[in-house]
Nucleic acid binder design. Structure first.
Lengths: 198, 198
DNA sequence: TGCATATAGTGCAGTCTATGCAAGTTAGTT
DNA sequence: AACTAACTTGCATAGACTGCACTATATGCA
């Protein structure tokens, strides 16, 4: 049947309850003004159980990992356009289309807008993404391991994305489905302009 | 006299003793395998005093902040070259010439090389630098506040530097005084190439 | 159905970073 | 010598996180 075991469902639901409670409380009061005990209580589990589901407080709020999916990578690796254009498309797709990523961002947008310090907690996540991207760039160039050049390009690309996200979080009307992709395009254009300038 | 008060000297020395003890222990065992109590003990002060000198454990190891100095900024803001070239020079100067920055990096290089996870602790620092750089870029363009374009360029520039630093930390013979500057040049060249490509 | 086992939840004790407070110590001042 | 300000320290506490041991319940299998 389509039903997984009772246990599996419970597990998913409890996880979600903890996450929801965490997001709600952090939205109300801010990351540092909410304790794990409070989140656990709001979710109806013991504090110890909280850590059974999430290794850290921040993971309960920013669950992950929003990795690049295999399909997107494949498309990029075999891409025929200019590297820069294909990178732009890759980043756009990732940020805008991946349902998990998009949902998470929309849900957390108010947090980013209200509490800019929160970005600190995401740097590790972006680091993982950067590593994965470097790998993809190397592959596209028919290498097995990324060279330092590949790493630079990966780092720059994630920077561009991070920058666009920060900007997007501050937007008034971010409902427009293409708002984020537009920002990413703009940022890549700015990058191109920078390098082209005499 | 050139001698400051006994107290002032003591303060500087104690700070340095704590820092040295911290670096030594972390080099031996790794960041997470060293406790504040141990550092304090090795430095000959009480654990409470440790926090009198440094607000967090990581600040004792990566003291700061390595801000851009006013002179370097001034030079950049009034620079006449292309934006990209002047950014490259700015970053090069910062990383290679600022004595404080350079000393700190040389001292901590083994830590970066041995324990790559440590980069996580530096992201906040790089964020500050990015903000400062965005401000400088805006100024150079005769604006009072950075636009989103300025932020992107600042983000990209610090990315390039971070990438170069990571590479430099892994080098065998980083004694060469220009090694780091060379890496930064290379990375900027890679960036230019990326954007120029058809 | 009934038993064995795996898994989820929980309490408890403990570690580590960090902070506030208050009492003591020592350097600089008059 | 007496006073003040800076520095040190111990003590108590909060909060994130871990290991361990125990219970309850779900699930698989005879």
């Amino acid at each position: 049947m389509s039903e997984k075991s009772l246990r599996a469902r419970r597990r998913v639901q409890t996880r979600s309850e903890i996450h929801d409670a965490a997001v709600e409380l952090v939205l109300e009061r801010g990351f540092n003004e909410v304790t794990v005990d409070e989140i656990a209580e709001a979710a109806g589990v013991s504090p110890r159980t909280f850590f059974n589901y999430f290794p850290t407080k921040q993971e309960a709020i920013f669950p992950g990992p929003p990795e690049l999916d295999a399909e997107t990578i494949e498309q990029f690796v075999t891409g025929a356009g200019s590297l820069l254009a294909d990178l732009r498309d890759l980043i756009s797709n990732y940020a805008e289309l991946a349902p998990k990523v998009r949902h998470q961002m929309v849900e957390l947008r108010p947090i980013f807008a209200q509490q800019p310090e929160i970005w600190i907690h995401l740097h590790k996540r972006f680091g993982d993404l950067e590593q994965q991207l470097a790998q993809a760039i190397a592959q596209r160039r028919h290498r097995t391991d990324p060279t330092s050049d590949d790493y630079v390009i990966a780092a720059v690309s994630t920077s561009v994305m991070r920058s666009a996200l920060r900007c997007w979080a501050r937007l008034e009307k971010a409902d427009s489905p293409t708002a984020l992709a537009d920002l990413i395009d703009r940022n890549f254009a700015a990058l191109k302009l920078l390098a082209a300038e005499e």
